[in-house]
Structure formats: C-alpha cells, structure tokens
Amino acid sequence: MDALNIARDRPDSPDVQALLIRHFELMRASSPEESCHVMEPGALLERDVTLLAARDGDAVLGVGALAQVEPGHGELKSMHTSAEARGRGVGRAILAGLLNEARAQGMARVSLETGTAGMFAPARALYAAHGFEECPPFGDYTVDPLSVFMTTTL
C-alpha cells in the first residue's frame, strides 16, 4: 500500500460517488427504510458538508463526511471503507481527519448514528476507541431499536 492520503474531496467526483453509492446500497439492503438514516450521495452536495476521501494512489478506499447539526455540534455521515480495504486503518484515518476538521470548524461536540446489527460492531468499536460514548438521539433522530447514537466532546 502506498502512503494513505486523506484529503477533502467532492461527493460528485466519479470515484468518490461510486463508493458512496455502494455505501448507500449496502445500508438500504441492511436496514428497514424507517430505520435507515444513510444520506443519498446527492444530498451530500445539497448540505454544507466536509467530505474526506482516503486514497491509495488513484484508488478511493474510504469516505466520510462531517455535517453541522447546530452551531458547535457536528455529525459524522457516510463513513464507509471499501470491502477490499477493510482492516488497513482506513476508517481510523478518516475518523481522525474528520475530528480534526470538526476542531478546525470550532465544533465542541461530534455525534453519529449507526446500527445495532453485528455488521456495525467494528464501527461501534472504532468510535468507542476514539472516545465516543452512547447518548440519546440528537438533532431530528428519535429512539429506534435498530440505531445506536454516540457522541464525543472535542
């Protein structure tokens, strides 16, 4: 693997969009619609989000976005590592980059929603290892037995 490059990117870049579509389709196939909070790739363009992509050379290995929930409070969205790149530290690198972006944007808190199913266990462990703790629903979310809400202060 070349040096992993984490940098701002655009959701409409063809290779980034392809990975976002894979993420969207996987999330839609894994959760009932009423419990699936994945953003459509095009919605990332409509909202003021900071999107980071992890690249190894020209290959996009992972993506993640930071959206503002309210002043000083950000939300992680569309965190996804390609199946081929899992276990290589891609998610950890993107998460670190997004937390740095949140600090640079003056955010004091970052939260997220993820699933309760076993397939989400590695993500929950990653977030916990970076100081995220379970919390009540935030923003427009409501209690859902298929969702876990997590937050950290910066």
Rank of each mutant, 00 (worst) to 15 (best):
L26K: 14
A29Y: 09
E33C: 09
H37R: 11
V38F: 06
L45M: 12
L45T: 09
E46T: 10
D48Y: 03
V49M: 03
V49L: 12
T50Y: 06
T50E: 01
L51Y: 08
L52N: 00
L52A: 08
L52D: 03
A53E: 07
A54H: 07
A54P: 07
D56I: 05
D56P: 04
G57Q: 03
G57S: 13
A59S: 12
L61I: 12
V63L: 15
V63R: 05
G64F: 09
G64A: 06
A65H: 06
L66N: 02
A67R: 07
E70M: 02
P71C: 02
G74E: 00
S78M: 12
S78L: 14
M79R: 05
M79L: 14
H80C: 11
H80G: 08
T81M: 03
S82K: 09
S82Q: 05
A83M: 05
A85G: 07
A85N: 01
G87S: 11
G87I: 12
G87E: 00
R88G: 03
V90W: 10
G91F: 00
A93R: 15
A93W: 12
A93P: 04
A93H: 07
I94H: 00
I94N: 02
I94V: 15
L95G: 03
A96T: 10
G97Q: 06
G97T: 05
G97Y: 06
E101D: 11
A102K: 00
R103S: 12
A104C: 08
A104S: 14
G106P: 09
G106H: 00
M107A: 07
M107I: 07
A108W: 01
A108L: 14
R109G: 06
S111Q: 04
S111N: 11
L112V: 11
E113K: 00
